[in-house]
């Protein structure tokens, strides 16, 4: 029997045609820069001047000598540890509340507004607000409260997105399951923890993962609100990378910092993916 070679080849060529643009794009704008960053992290690579291979020196400097990197790491974790739970709790609470409200759509739009306005504008407005509130010293100038103020502004800015995700998930909860639960006598907290949360757990997982990744990359809010100060109380990892690249003009050091950040995000996300098997329920 003759094998139908011709159609398959044609199919292959058209598949190739369709896939080439995105592969080229991915290669040029993602894979190449990522690969380049690995190479750069092993060089002393000044923005202006000659480069020199230095092996792991950049990493050694960041983890051993850089007075700011470990503080930035700690600040980033503190920020993430506060921002992610607050964001999820607020978004979740409001999503359940909105679900029962008569003005559901109005609330959704209102709470989503901060998420779609430019972050820089939001940060500037918050800075003016905090200035107007006053206090001696200002919340942003006090090392004990500066990071908390940054978290507060970030939660306000960020929860709207998760709220929309949760809101959709809450609306999609299967009425038959909820009805069965209420027939079995599940009410209040019991119903929330054992029935509703498991029902929306895929949305919770998605939101938790994405929010965590965003939180670990926090930059704009502290950059505008506090410029990393006072001292290095609000300096974050991405600010450290920015500082190395565009203020110290040391691109090798910036690339090394970015790679460490990448490794951390990869690790945290991997843990989340492993952990999800225990608490995320997909309806099949």
């Amino acid at each position: 029997m003759k094998r139908p070679v011709r159609p398959r080849t044609t199919e292959q060529w058209s598949a190739l045609g369709f896939v080439t643009p995105s592969v080229l794009g991915l290669g040029l704008f993602t894979l190449f820069p990522v690969g380049m960053a690995v190479v750069m992290s092993f060089f002393q690579w000044p923005m202006l001047g000659t480069r020199e291979f230095v092996g792991l020196d950049n990493f050694r400097y960041l983890l051993g000598e850089d007075p700011d990197f470990l503080t930035a790491l700690r600040n980033t974790f503190v920020f993430t540890g506060l921002y992610v739970p607050l964001n999820i709790l607020l978004a979740l609470g409001l999503a359940f509340w909105i679900h029962r409200s008569r003005w559901a759509n109005l609330w959704r739009v209102l709470f989503f507004v901060p998420a779609i306005t430019p972050m820089v504008a939001n940060a500037v407005i918050w800075k003016l607000l905090l200035q107007a509130v006053g206090g001696e010293p200002n919340l942003l100038a006090d090392g004990r409260t500066a990071l908390l103020a940054v978290v507060a502004m970030s939660v306000w800015q960020g929860f709207g997105y998760n709220m929309i995700v949760f809101s959709a998930a809450v609306n999609e909860m299967s009425p038959s399951v909820l009805e069965a639960a209420s027939l079995d006598g599940a009410t209040g907290l019991r119903r929330l923890v054992s029935v509703q949360l498991p029902l929306i757990s895929p949305a919770l997982f998605f939101a938790a993962t994405m929010t965590m990744i965003n939180a670990l990359q926090v930059f704009t809010q502290p950059y505008i609100l506090t410029a990393g100060g006072p001292g290095n109380a609000t300096e974050t990892l991405v600010m450290n990378v920015y500082q190395a690249g565009f203020e110290s003009r040391d691109l090798g050091l910036a690339a090394a910092g970015a790679w460490l950040l990448f490794a951390i995000i990869l690790g945290v996300t991997a843990v989340q993916f492993v952990g999800q098997k225990r608490w995320v329920h997909y309806e099949s």
Binding site: K127, L130, Q131, P137, N138, L140, A141, A146, Y223, I224, L225, T226, A227, G228, G229, P230
Partner: peptide, 8 residues
Amino acid sequence: ALVPASSS
């Protein structure tokens, strides 16, 4: 004197 409200 007025102290700056933040490092930025």
